[in-house]
Design a protein around this nucleic acid. Structure first.
Lengths: 336, 336
DNA sequence: TGTGCCTACTCAACCGGTTCAGTCAACATC
DNA sequence: GATGTTGACTGAACCGGTTGAGTAGGCACA
């Protein structure tokens, strides 16, 4: 089946290719009557501009890239990325930008993908997830001058735009809530320690704990259920076990809940549990989990708007998204 | 920063653009010595072919599309799609194909996306998920002659290639297992009834139940935890309540487990639970869920191989993937 | 009537690859 | 020595848009 081109439209309208291009793109240079005629023909024959031809002459790919650097089993189980993608997509498709996705094994591979995308002109910009401290991807993107929005920050992003949320504040609020309930020994099962937001949370957790005069220990984990369960088992086996545990994602929190039950501890009676990331999963457990949540699709949509603005050459800085808020459910209570 | 083109390479190598193209693509027409020289220069200056130029002249976009038609909150919570994407990606990136993702609201919008992609030549082929009975997308793709692989089937796929698994067999096996344990009243909380695989499972469930002479009722749901919980509550409130429930996905199974516990029923003592889709979630609950699983990334990888073959013009039919197998865990036992 | 200026176009180059039709030298064959 | 044949390469057209330069016709104004 032959795809219609602007030449076909031009022939039918009795004008030149250039006139058709002006008409379709809302540029001046054609009369209103001709523009309407051309638009009608385009509509009638179901014309869509060839994206490659457009990219080649217009030098814009009309696509943005997202490279995800997590193993398949974690990607699948964590609702965060899919919700983010949904939000990003909503914004992109409204402006008929495509989203190109690539799963990579490590940050080096991710850098290679950026270089390839840049060289191939496959994307006009990229999202950068899981920011690390002194992230090696940042200088590469700066040098390539590939528009980018870091999802995270606001530090260590170099000259790149970013979108971030005040995790430290959310964490402080949560800790205050637990202390107000009467908890004095509170643990946190953190995410991958090399990630910047883990570092930010760990620092805030320690500082607020000290300020409130309570024990606040963080143990590192990797977002998987297995590791979350193992960390919980270790915490709950200590002589001086915590009365509340805060988890850096919902998957680990659910694993932790399961471990507590397996060890015969009542939740929330013997142990209070708080999850970071309030996906629908948190309401499926028994008891449902108290969780720190925010609107992830909206976060993604905002990131997409930032990136599109950056691609248009606007000077973009750091944008602060809403702080996560605590939704108390059945998994938190005063300690017995 | 200027991107290198084949003209740059040609100039440095002292040959024409055509020769460079032959050399880079492993075509005959250049001597081995010249080929090596050109390859070395390309390597040195970090050349990547402009994907738009390639698409424009070669008429292949080097990208495939996946349109997902589920609301954000379900997409996020169901590990299936992300695992599928991981598998697809692994195969595609090895052949340096890109994956273009789009989230759509309904099948009509999905058809519009296919038409747009086709018109824009943005993708060389697409994956079709969530096949329905007499799916309206199938004839559209056939007419566009856009290579496609249906993930599901093997019926109602028209002339399109597909990859499928024998859900009916897996379901029969599971039902036999539950009956062998001593269950006589078994319920199933099914997925969206308009989807073909739901229909296939429902039919198999009824047939095998009849063959084994046990009560086997299916109630419809929509894959969400909320609906799964509601259906479970209804089932467990009936005078003649089932002693085992089979859920069409893991999220509903987890919700069901939670409802059972909330109603004071012991799992597996009073109620056995089996989940379809064995993601890591199933091992996080207490007790862990007996589940029907298969290797989803491998499924995705195979689908990608099929699609690439179809794009190359090979005649592809239906490919049957491994049948899901049951992993018994703590949520199933003989009824009390 | 000539000049200037606008509007509404046309024309052709260009983006960066691929590919087909030639060209030309070297070698083989009779 | 004339005649293929082959290998290695060049040159130009082409894919389907965008865009800047050029132009024809109409109108205003002096």
């Amino acid at each position: 089946m032959k795809r219609p081109t602007i030449a076909d439209i031009a022939r039918r309208a009795g004008v030149s290719k250039g006139a058709v291009s002006y008409a379709l793109n809302g540029q001046p240079g054609v009369s209103e009557a001709t523009r309407q005629r051309i638009l009608a023909i385009a509509q009638e024959i179901g014309f869509n501009p060839n994206s490659a031809a457009r990219a080649l002459s217009g030098s814009t790919a009309n696509a943005v890239g997202l490279a995800l650097c997590r193993p398949a089993r974690i990607l699948g189980i964590e609702p965060f990325f899919m919700e983010l993608i949904s939000g990003v997509e909503a914004e992109l498709s409204a402006r008929s930008y495509a989203l190109t996705l690539q799963v990579v094994a490590d940050p080096e591979a991710e850098i290679a993908v950026y270089k390839q995308w840049w060289g191939e002109r496959r994307v006009d910009g990229v999202f950068v997830c899981d920011l690390r401290i002194d992230d090696s991807r940042v200088p590469v993107l700066e040098e390539l001058q590939l528009p980018a929005v870091v999802i995270g920050g606001p530090e260590h992003t170099g000259e790149l735009a970013c979108i971030w949320a005040d995790d430290a504040a959310a964490l402080g609020e949560t800790l205050e809530y637990l202390v107000a309930l009467g908890h004095r020994r509170i643990a946190r099962v953190g995410g991958l320690p090399e990630l910047l937001h883990t570092e930010i949370r760990s620092r805030a957790f320690a500082e607020v704990g000290q300020r409130l005069g309570v024990e606040a220990v963080t143990v590192s984990s990797d977002y998987t259920g297995e590791e979350g369960a193992r960390a919980t088992r270790r915490l709950l086996s200590s002589a001086h076990r915590p009365t509340a545990i805060l988890y850096d994602n919902d998957v680990m929190a659910i694993a932790g809940l399961s471990v507590a039950q397996e060890m015969g501890l009542a939740v929330p009676g013997d142990l209070s549990i708080v999850a970071w990331d309030d996906s629908a999963l948190c309401q499926l457990t028994h008891p449902p989990l108290t969780a720190l949540g925010r609107d992830i699709p909206a976060y993604g949509a905002h990131a997409a708007r930032q990136l599109l603005a950056a691609i248009e050459g606007k000077k973009i800085g750091a944008y602060q998204h809403e702080t996560a808020h605590l939704t108390p459910r059945g998994s938190t209570a005063p300690p017995r």
